[in-house]
Amino acid sequence: MKSLKKANKRNLTNSVCGYKLALMRLAEAETNKTYKVVAIEGGCNAKDRLIKLGLLPGVEIQIKRKAPLRGPFMVTLNDSDIVIGRGIASKIEVAEII
């Protein structure tokens, strides 16, 4: 997390592991673009379940659809689809793969 904040301060885009990255929250991400999960912060319990469902740092993720009226997101991971609330999505730091 520390290095992430530094990166945020330094520049919005950064290059990690050969990817060109634009850091942002999953909540601000767009549908049908591929992102890489950078970090998950916030409530321990939510983090735990997310990890078990395969959403953890380093994993590629796509937003498949967003429910209307500030509803939840449906995201695609390696091999499955999961739905997460928008509040949780705002606690997941992702980087767009350009």
Partner: peptide
Amino acid sequence: SPEMIIDI
């Protein structure tokens, strides 16, 4: 109420 995380 915590938010939802559900497998589809």
